[in-house]
């Protein structure tokens, strides 16, 4: 490839033209002298060494998950809970399906049934015979909690929901009524 004389000319053109308006000159420091260069390399190393050595006395900030868990704020929206009345033990949920209507991810399924004197499940006339939340679809928006007229469903704090199959992520009423197996610690006051 023969050098293009025109190109060379253009190059010299630019240098001779000094800095044109649209070229910003890079501001460089003074070219380091040898001793300064040595200082720079070791100085930085020493500074970081100081940081490292200083931290060795501190407690670690990383959390040893899963042995340890991050505490969450009380309003953290995690795995749902269904509730019972404390005195009677009856389920609060009456199977009204309002949470189903509210859910933007369409991941709740409720099939209601009628209470009978022999089989009284909830306090009202009806109860949820089937109550399922598909956790793999839930976006934890909390609308279900807002929609529920009986505070029967609330968002818990637990976020450990992974499992090996998708179908295991469909939480049934029994699972939601029970205490979660993996508990998530709550952030304490002032923490």
């Amino acid at each position: 490839m023969t050098p293009d004389p025109g190109a060379a000319e253009t190059m010299s053109d630019i240098s001779s033209n000094a800095l044109s308006d649209d070229v910003i000159a890079v501001q460089r420091g003074p070219t380091p002298t040898r001793s300064k260069a040595v200082y720079r390399a070791f100085g930085a190393t020493l500074r970081s060494l100081r940081t490292t050595l200083a931290r060795t006395l501190e407690k670690p900030t990383t959390i040893q998950y899963p042995e340890q868990k991050t505490p969450v704020y009380p309003r953290f929206r995690g795995r749902h809970k269904l509730h019972r009345f404390e005195e009677s033990g009856l389920e609060k949920c009456v199977g009204c399906s309002l949470c189903v209507a509210a859910c933007p991810a369409e991941c709740i399924r409720v099939v209601a049934a009628e209470n009978t004197p022999e089989h009284q499940v909830s306090a009202g006339e009806r109860y949820a015979a089937v109550y399922e939340i598909n956790m793999s679809r839930c976006i934890f928006c909390g609308y279900c909690e807002l929609a529920c007229p009986f505070d029967a469903i609330t968002m818990g704090n637990d976020y450990e929901l992974s499992d090996y199959t998708r179908s295991d992520l469909i939480f049934t009423k029994e699972m939601l009524l029970a205490e979660p197996i993996e508990r998530t610690p709550l952030r304490r006051e002032g923490e």
Binding site: G95, S97, V100, A101, V111, A112, E114
Partner: peptide, 9 residues
């Protein structure tokens, strides 16, 4: 139909 479903179901 008693308690079988809601309109959105």
């Amino acid at each position: 139909y008693r308690f079988r479903a809601r309109p959105w179901d």
